[in-house]
């Protein structure tokens, strides 16, 4: 049997490579626009920070989509599905390798932000509010924000997987005739049901948070995280069941 660490390593490698390409493109974009700004005579110490801030969203979105595509591809490719490992572990390693790659991307962005912020500090510092107005306890909100963004990524990926795996499994049973049209109908139905069920769970937890924390505390966010975790676990269990019982790989 294949070890989970070995699977994590191999699945992570492809994703790591994709994200590095995104980072490289981002750096090229920052360099090119930086040079262009310098040619126009508008370059100052804070320019690189502003350019990094304005370019970082695009590689994040594209990288996120590429990671989702890689994650889904693994479920129906013989290259991955022939690996002798239990489906729950397979599913976990696929999702976790995507998450680890996303964390890596965020760390690189944080370094880029920090570096360009440090370079432009003398100019940027004048525009910042006094430290007293920022507040003393900034650590918890930052941690919660980071966790929310990571959990959101996991939630989106597991929901995409759920829709993908349900449609993949049902397409085996549909007649070949007009299968594409039927697949679209199945996609719409599954997406609608998934959004309604996930929404129901999240709203339920939000209601619980309101009555428990009286709508003012960071505790609401912690409960939102818990709600996301519940949806991710439920979808995860269903995805593993679908992988075990119904989802086939694409034929050669």
């Amino acid at each position: 049997m294949t070890k989970m660490s070995a699977l994590f390593k191999t699945m992570g490698w492809t994703k790591f490579r994709q994200i590095n390409q995104m980072i490289l493109l981002e750096l090229i974009a920052v360099a090119v626009t930086g040079i262009w700004t310098a040619i126009k005579g508008n370059f100052n110490l804070a320019t690189l920070f502003y350019l990094t801030a304005s370019w970082s969203m695009l590689p994040y979105v594209v990288g996120f989509i590429l990671l989702a595509v890689s994650t889904e591809k693994a479920y129906t490719a013989d290259t991955f599905r022939l690996i002798p490992i239990e489906e729950t572990r397979f599913y976990l390693m696929n999702l976790l390798s995507s998450l680890a790659t996303l964390v890596y991307f965020m760390v690189v962005q944080a370094v880029l932000y920090g570096l360009t912020f440090w370079l432009g500090w003398s100019r940027i510092s004048g525009m910042l509010p006094p430290m007293a107005t920022v507040g003393s306890n900034v650590v918890e909100p930052i941690i919660v924000m980071l966790l929310v963004s990571l959990m959101t990524a996991l939630l989106i990926w597991s929901t995409i997987s759920f829709v993908h795996l349900v449609t993949s499994a049902t397409s085996n049973f549909l007649p070949k005739f007009r299968q594409r049209a039927l697949n679209v109908v199945v996609y719409v139905i599954v997406i609608f049901i998934t959004i309604r069920v996930a929404g129901f769970i999240v709203h339920g937890v939000a209601w619980f948070a309101r009555i428990t924390f009286n709508g003012t505390d960071l505790g609401q966010f912690w409960l939102a995280l818990a709600a996301m975790a519940v949806v991710i676990l439920v979808e995860g269990a269903l995805n593993v069941f679908l992988l075990k019982r119904w989802v086939e790989t694409a034929a050669n």
Partner: peptide, 27 residues
């Protein structure tokens, strides 16, 4: 051991990388 068609790999990948993959996941 099944002769799968390597569709899970990116086309830009070198053969040596595919071999590394096999060596890692198949004991």
């Amino acid at each position: 051991s099944f002769s799968e068609q390597l569709h899970g790999f990116n086309k830009n990948v070198k053969i040596s990388r595919v071999v590394d993959f096999y060596q890692t996941v198949y004991s």
